[in-house]
Computed example of a mutant assay.
Amino acid sequence: MVLRVETEQAGVMDMEAIVVFDIDGVIRDVGGSYRRALADTVEHFTQGAYRPSPEDIDALKAEGLWNNDWEASQELLYRYFEAQGRSREATATNPIRLDYDELVAFFQSRYRGTDPTHWTGYICQEPLLLRPAYLEQLTQAGILWGFFSGATTGSARYILEQRLGLQSPVLVAMEDAPGKPDPTGLLQTVRLLHGSDAAPVLYVGDTVADMHTIAKVRQVQPDRPWFAVGVLPPHVQKTEVNKQAYIATLQQAGAQVVYDNVQELTVEAIEKLVRG
């Protein structure tokens, strides 16, 4: 598969390109689902004393270390209790006692629902941020595409296959690779797409961890062109101040371009980016 790029000198130049998408905040709006479940979890385990705001969650994720929302919930809880003078160290006086498995179970009861077979939780209400026709346009242009996400396999496949109707898309999810910004999962996704070893790769994400993943993968494969593409999650676009601040955060983390919506990364935009 090739992406055809017109040039003044040569007429037509064949170039293969690969686009790998994050899912949360890029393919689906998780402001009322994952983020809501995260806030519910923190509120529950503080007995209602603290519910993190969207700004609190953004500030945590801007650190680039908390792509996993279970771990993000736990970290916000630790920080809340530490602010109350308690220690997260188990051997310290008055330690914080958090059962991680219990935390995950509560989070999932809100996000997926309490029925393990027929999901009824927040996941069922997630707005989609792209149409299948967009992906078909990439395919028609000869662009390979797949997904690398920190979401669980079940959650990712639910949105990709049941909601978007994709047939067995290439996916590397939480269970398949270390969490971002570790680039292992991105490299796995690229290999599964069977593209040329020299093909430029664009990774499309909405967080600092996504942008840092590109910085780290360049260290592993410095000879391949890697591009960091930022997308603004819907919740930060409600005010211009928040939007511009988030753009600056992604750019500081390495985003080469930032879009309001993933579908703005058109075939023409990909051509422009990979050609420099």
Rank of each mutant, 00 (worst) to 15 (best):
W66A: 01
V104F: 10
Y78S: 06
T120P: 02
V19W: 07
G142L: 02
L138K: 10
I143T: 04
G32K: 11
H118C: 09
T91V: 10
T91H: 13
E75T: 14
D40E: 09
G113F: 11
G121C: 06
R51S: 01
Y34T: 13
P95G: 14
P95F: 13
Y34G: 02
R110T: 04
Y78L: 13
P116M: 10
L60F: 06
T114N: 07
P52H: 08
R51W: 01
Y50Q: 01
G142T: 05
E136F: 02
F21W: 09
R112Q: 14
N68E: 12
E71N: 08
D24I: 00
L129V: 09
Q140C: 04
W70C: 07
N68M: 06
I57C: 01
F21A: 05
N68Y: 08
G113R: 09
W119P: 03
Q47H: 11
Y80I: 06
C124A: 13
F107H: 13
N94D: 12
R110C: 09
L38K: 02
E71R: 13
F106L: 03
Q137C: 06
V19N: 09
D24Y: 00
P52W: 10
L60S: 04
V104H: 10
L135E: 00
K61P: 00
L129D: 00
Q108S: 11
Y34C: 12
S33C: 07
A133M: 01
F106C: 03
S73K: 01
T114P: 00
I143M: 08
A62D: 15
L129A: 04
Y122M: 08
R51P: 00
S87D: 11
